Simulated scan of single mutants.
Amino acid sequence: MRRRLLLQLALATGAAAAQPARAFLLGLLTQGDDERFSPQSLEHGYPEHPYGRSAPAAQIALDDSAFALQNAGYASAKLVTVEAPDAAGLPAALDQLLRQGVRHVLLELPAAGVAAVANAARGKDVILFNVAAPEDALRGAQCAPNLLHTIPSHAMQADALVQLLAVRKWNRVLVLAGPTPDDRLLQAAFQRSLKRFGLKPLAEKPFKLSNDPRERDLGNVRLLTAERDYDAVVVLDADGEFARDVPYRTVLPRLVLGSSGLTAGAWSFYFERQGAPQLNHRFEKKTNRVMGSYDWATWMAARAAAEAVGANPKATTAQLLQALKSDALSFDGYKGRPLSFRAWDGQLRQPLLLAHGNGVADIAPLEGFLHQRTTLDTLGYDAPETACKAR
């Protein structure tokens, strides 16, 4: 009898050992010619720009979610990174991930790359997370049913800044806007926010950095701010080179916000509440640099993907996507409130940190801005406003 039991135990153990260990695979898709991650761009360290590649943030999130994944039957979690040399190589890079069994893919890509991958992924068994493109169109006319966003949109950032202006009663706003297409996107988002919250700019002036002597005045902060009295200066500069020189150079001693001075973002190394210091220190230990908004967006997307799978181990990809875009799942982003994805455009609801060079001044949404569902929906496009048709 004992020999028979030992034999049965041995056979059962051998059968279990013969079964391959189940691993949760998380994809990370990058683009080699993304200028935001060039050495020259990273050296500047401008506010609300990437500080480096964010793969370490994804790995931290997978480590954080190991217990939940193990309870769901996953023996391990693996980050699978694929880099396409350029935008033309992104569909093939996505297919490479899918062939490996990846069903959740983080997109550390510029807006055009995100749109290209979302188009290539139509009808495929995959959930995409945009972690690096804040452009509003990706949540609007270019949205996709399986595309979620953890990086805040331009509209969310602008709403956070305008809420601050309204609460502080800094109603006379001087706006300095750049000439590039990316600058115009920032300007459009800010104009929408001003209208949304009932403010009007005192004046809007174009700036331009140029070596042409005839255009030198367009880059002179003193001349651009020699306006009648204003309460604050908003600078909208997607590149960041002009904006860095605006604080402390205005004619009047006024607050500067927007692309420099006081900024609205997903994260700040100086946030010292809700478990943020522990996350910041773990990231700094792993990378020898501070954690920024793009890193947080990647960490949050990886955490959301892993926790969704952990909570629904038998769900199909389509069922997981449906759960993610409902109120059934919420996540702790170390910002004090449960975070969830909006059903109408896939954007992650989240507070934004109004931060400056060495601290956090406030957190949006600010007190006094109400919403019938959640005050987090006062940031960004609400359901009645969305241009997204693919839900």
Rank of each mutant, 00 (worst) to 15 (best):
S330A: 13
L106M: 05
L353W: 01
N71H: 14
A355K: 05
L185F: 05
V105D: 04
Q278K: 15
I363N: 01
P277H: 09
V246K: 00
Q31P: 09
L354W: 00
A318C: 00
A112V: 12
K124P: 00
Q372N: 15
H44F: 11
Q19H: 12
R3L: 15
A364P: 02
R99Y: 04
L42T: 13
R168M: 13
Q96E: 12
A118R: 10
F37E: 06
N71S: 14
H49M: 13
L165M: 14
H154Q: 14
L6P: 06
E35W: 11
L107A: 06
T250L: 08
R249S: 15
W344E: 04
V131A: 02
A160D: 02
G359M: 06
L69D: 05
F271A: 08
A387N: 12
D159L: 06
P39A: 12
V251T: 10
N130V: 06
M291C: 02
L128H: 02
S340L: 13
A318H: 08
K208I: 12
P47F: 11
A57R: 03
Y248E: 14
A111H: 13
G198T: 08
V131D: 00
A133F: 02
P313Q: 09
A68I: 05
P145E: 06
K169M: 01
L329Q: 11
A144V: 06
T81F: 07
Q96S: 14
A318D: 09
G89C: 08
S153T: 03
A75P: 00
S260V: 04
T378D: 08
K286V: 03
L324R: 09
T13G: 15
P247T: 05
S326Q: 08
V234Y: 00
S38C: 04
S293G: 13
L236I: 01
V256L: 10
A137H: 04
L109F: 05
R168W: 05
S340Q: 13
G258R: 09
P145S: 14
L106Y: 01
A266Y: 03
D33A: 11
Y334E: 13
A77L: 11
V114P: 07
